[in-house]
């Protein structure tokens, strides 16, 4: 059960499924004075940023 939960956490992290939650946590810690991005806007920017470099190989 513990292994399964670990795998699920890993899968969410590695696929970026939990990216918004992690962003919120980071935002609260670092810039609590400003309002965070909405989920949709955050995801849009994240995708743009992820695809501006070499991401895939032969």
């Amino acid at each position: 059960m513990k292994a399964l939960r670990g795998f699920w956490t890993w899968l969410r992290a590695v696929s970026g499924d939990d990216a918004y939650e992690r962003y919120l946590a980071h935002h609260m810690a670092a810039h609590a004075d400003r309002a965070p991005l909405a989920r949709r806007e955050f995801f849009r920017r994240r995708q743009e940023a992820a695809w501006s470099g070499v991401k895939r190989c032969c």
């Binding site: 899968l11 969410r12 696929s15 970026g16 499924d17 990216a19 918004y20 989920r39 949709r40 955050f42 995801f43 849009r44 994240r46 995708q47």
Partner: peptide, 14 residues
């Protein structure tokens, strides 16, 4: 799906 219907739900979409 990932952008408009359920934004950022990567695992669901996949």
């Amino acid at each position: 799906y990932m952008r408009n219907i359920r934004p950022g739900r990567v695992l669901e979409g996949s």
